[in-house]
Amino acid sequence: MTEYKLVVVGAGGVGKSALTIQLIQNHFVDEYDPTIEDSYRKQVVIDGETCLLDILDTAGQEEYSAMRDQYMRTGEGFLCVFAINNTKSFEDIHHYREQIKRVKDSEDVPMVLVGNKCDLPSRTVDTKQAQDLARSYGIPFIETSAKTRQGVDDAFYTLVREIRKHKEKMSKDGKKKKKKSKTKCVIM
């Protein structure tokens, strides 16, 4: 069974824990209790493949930012979460993405942009803004509501699919490099 290491990042209060708990335990946590770091595991079937999701729910508070490099190193894919009623959390996505790329030393890291709290009427981040940002990053965008469960499975499952595509691409690139290195030079 394939294991996928997913990391949920975003500013404090955007609903990272609520999304994760909704996926794992099928219930909505409405009281806000700032996370330092929590880890969850769940076995699911995605596109006919049974897999184990190892999900790291991270601290959004700035005082825990020193811990970010460590979990970013171990993560295979990242859910970059903002709240649709919090423009600052949307603007912060850029910083999370840049930090992930720096730590992973790669421009090509599996990510999904997630606009959470889409059940709320007080939207300050337009869907088109988020779609445009995701398009500019070359990553999928999904709106979710941890409260109603809308888009929750889709967000995590899409990230797994992005990781699969990335692994497939990397193995193809690896095979191309191996083929090239088999060419021999004969000096007579």
Rank of each mutant, 00 (worst) to 15 (best):
Y64E: 10
K184Q: 12
E107Y: 14
K88F: 15
M111V: 09
H94L: 14
F141L: 05
Q150W: 03
I36M: 11
A83R: 11
R161A: 13
V44W: 05
M111K: 02
K172N: 08
G60M: 15
V152Q: 06
K176T: 09
V44A: 06
C80G: 02
Q99C: 12
R164K: 15
G77K: 01
D33K: 00
D54H: 02
N116S: 12
E62M: 04
F90P: 02
S39N: 10
A134L: 05
S89E: 14
A59I: 11
K104I: 13
K169N: 14
M170E: 15
T74G: 12
F28A: 02
G151F: 11
V109Y: 07
D126Y: 09
A155W: 15
I36S: 00
P34D: 04
G115N: 04
R97S: 07
L120H: 13
D108E: 10
D54P: 00
G13F: 01
E31R: 06
R123W: 05
L56T: 09
D154W: 05
L56E: 11
Y40G: 00
S17R: 00
M67P: 02
R164C: 13
Q70Y: 15
G13W: 03
I187P: 14
D119Q: 13
K101A: 10
S65A: 06
T158L: 06
Q129F: 14
T74L: 09
K175D: 06
G10C: 10
E37P: 01
K101W: 09
S181D: 07
V160Y: 06
A134F: 02
R68L: 02
I93M: 11
Y157L: 10
V114G: 00
T2F: 05
A83W: 01
L52A: 03
S181W: 05
E31N: 08
K104H: 14
A134S: 09
L23I: 10
I84H: 14
K88G: 12
Q131G: 11
G48C: 03
L113R: 06
I100G: 06
T127W: 06
H95T: 14
Y96Q: 08
L159I: 12
M170H: 08
D154P: 05
D108G: 07
Y64M: 08
V14R: 15
Y40V: 04
C80E: 00
V81G: 07
K178N: 06
Y64R: 05
L113H: 05
D132N: 07
V29Y: 11
K117C: 13
K117V: 14
A155Y: 15
S122Y: 08
V152F: 10
K172H: 05
F141S: 10
I84D: 15
K165I: 12
H166V: 09
G15K: 00
E37A: 03
E162A: 06
E37R: 00
G138C: 04
K172A: 10
E162F: 04
F90N: 14
Q131I: 07
M67E: 06
T124N: 11
V112S: 00
C51S: 07
K104Y: 08
P110S: 04
S65G: 05
H27A: 12
Y32N: 02
D132Y: 05
K177P: 09
G115T: 07
G15A: 01
V103E: 14
V103A: 13
L23K: 14
S106M: 13
R161S: 14
N86V: 03
G60S: 15
V109K: 05
Q43D: 03
L6I: 11
L19S: 15
H94P: 05
I93V: 07
D57N: 00
L53I: 09
Y4E: 03
R68E: 02
D105Y: 06
H95K: 12
S106Y: 11
K88E: 14
I142M: 02
Y96E: 13
K172S: 12
K178Q: 08
H166E: 11
I187D: 09
L6R: 01
D47C: 03
N86E: 14
A18T: 14
R73D: 11
D153Y: 08
V29I: 07
L53P: 14
G77I: 15
G10F: 03
K184R: 05
R164V: 11
V160D: 06
K178C: 06
R102M: 08
Q43Y: 09
A18S: 14
V160W: 03
K128C: 07
K178F: 11
R123E: 13
T158P: 07
E76T: 15
T158Q: 07
G48E: 08
E49V: 08
Q22N: 09
L19K: 11
E107M: 14
V125K: 09
Q25I: 15
Q43P: 07
S145V: 12
V103R: 13
D47L: 02
T124D: 13
E162K: 11
K167E: 11
N26D: 09
T87Q: 05
V125G: 11
E162P: 02
L120R: 13
G60A: 14
V81P: 13
R73G: 08
C80N: 02
S106Q: 12
R41N: 00
M72R: 01
M111N: 00
T50D: 05
Y32F: 13
M72G: 02
Y64D: 05
L19Q: 11
K16S: 15
F90K: 15
R97K: 14
I46A: 08
I142R: 12
E98H: 02
M72F: 13
E76V: 15
M188Y: 14
T127S: 08
P121K: 10
Q25F: 03
G48S: 05
V103C: 14
I142N: 05
E98C: 02
Q150L: 06
K169P: 15
G10S: 15
L56I: 02
V186D: 10
L120P: 15
C185G: 09
K167V: 07
V112D: 04
Q129L: 06
L56M: 13
S122H: 11
G48L: 03
V103Q: 04
Q70R: 04
Q22I: 01
V112H: 00
T183S: 08
F82Y: 11
S17K: 00
L6F: 08
M188R: 07
L52Y: 02
D92I: 02
Q25P: 00
E107I: 10
Q131S: 10
T87W: 05
M188E: 09
C185D: 13
M188I: 08
E3F: 01
A59C: 14
Q129Y: 11
L23Y: 06
I163M: 04
Y4C: 13
R135N: 11
Y157R: 13
H95S: 13
Y4G: 10
A18L: 00
F82E: 11
V114M: 12
C118Q: 06
I139G: 13
V109S: 08
T74Y: 05
Q22K: 11
E76S: 15
D33T: 00
M170W: 15
V45F: 03
V103G: 07
K5S: 02
D132G: 07
I36Y: 00
K184E: 10
H94W: 06
T35R: 15
A59Y: 04
G48P: 05
T183Q: 11
G60D: 15
Q70H: 15
D126C: 08
G75Q: 02
R123S: 12
E107N: 09
E37T: 01
P110Q: 03
S65K: 02
K175A: 04
K165S: 10
F82W: 08
C51H: 11
G138L: 01
S181T: 08
Y4D: 02
E107Q: 09
Y64P: 07
D33R: 01
M188T: 08
Q99R: 05
F90Y: 11
Q43H: 08
Q131F: 07
K16C: 15
I36E: 00
Q43G: 07
R102N: 12
S17F: 00
V45E: 11
E37I: 02
T127N: 09
E76G: 14
T58S: 13
D57W: 00
D108A: 09
V160H: 03
I21A: 05
N85Y: 08
T35G: 14
V9L: 15
L19H: 14
I93S: 02
R41S: 00
P34F: 10
M67H: 05
E3D: 11
S122F: 07
T74H: 10
Y40K: 01
F90S: 12
P34V: 14
K117M: 14
R161H: 10
K117R: 14
H166K: 13
D69Q: 12
A66Y: 08
K179S: 07
R164I: 13
